[in-house]
């Protein structure tokens, strides 16, 4: 290789100056191996990066477990009482019509979902990994909360409507 080969050959020769030798300053400012090396360090996956998977790992203490079991018992009692309520009030096997059928059926369904959530919570409190059971219980509870929120909203709206009607009648009298 002669000295008249051009600048490209000169840049190729620069890293070959020797492993312990000083690197020429011009090599750091050009598109050379130094810049590539920095880029590689950034993009290279490090072994300390955790593999994709659960983002939250919560260790449930004994206190948490007993809370889960207690919550499951309370939820089961509430759910069973709610489930049995319409049957007790309207008579088991009795014929339901109209609004009673809708309200009784909805209340019984809410009781059933609450009982299911209680069962899943209890399973989670006894399991090694509580997440699947707890999340399943929370999904069932979400159904209960959605139905209750819609029902309560309707009850509030109807109450406001009835109150305004009664107030306007009283104002007329």
């Amino acid at each position: 290789m002669s000295a008249t080969d051009g600048p490209d050959h000169a840049s190729d020769d620069a890293p070959m100056a020797g492993p312990g030798g000083p690197r020429p300053a011009a090599a750091a400012t050009r598109e050379g191996p130094t810049a590539r090396r920095v880029l590689e360090l950034v993009t290279d996956p490090s072994p300390s990066v955790p593999p994709p998977g659960p983002t939250h790992r919560i260790a449930l203490s004994d206190r948490g477990r007993s809370l889960g079991r207690s919550l499951a018992r309370t939820m089961a009692a509430t759910g069973l009482a709610t489930l049995a309520g319409p049957a007790l009030l309207l008579g088991i096997g009795g014929h339901l019509h109209g609004a009673a059928l809708v309200v009784g059926g909805t209340v019984a369904a809410l009781g059933g979902w609450t009982t299911y959530a209680a069962w899943r919570t209890r399973r989670g409190a006894y399991a090694d990994d509580a997440a699947p059971s707890f999340v399943s219980a929370f999904r069932a509870l979400r159904v209960v909360f959605v139905v209750e929120a819609v029902g309560l909203f309707l009850a509030l709206a109807l109450s406001c409507f009835a109150f305004s009607i009664i107030a306007s009648f009283l104002a007329l009298l």
Binding site: P54, H56, F145
Partner: peptide, 22 residues
């Protein structure tokens, strides 16, 4: 054995939705 709750992003979305309705 310590009971652990390992939540995936899908589980987190479910819990977040339940919390909002709650």
């Amino acid at each position: 054995a310590p009971t652990r709750v390992a939540l995936t992003p899908r589980d987190e979305r479910s819990i977040d939705s339940m919390a909002r309705w709650m």
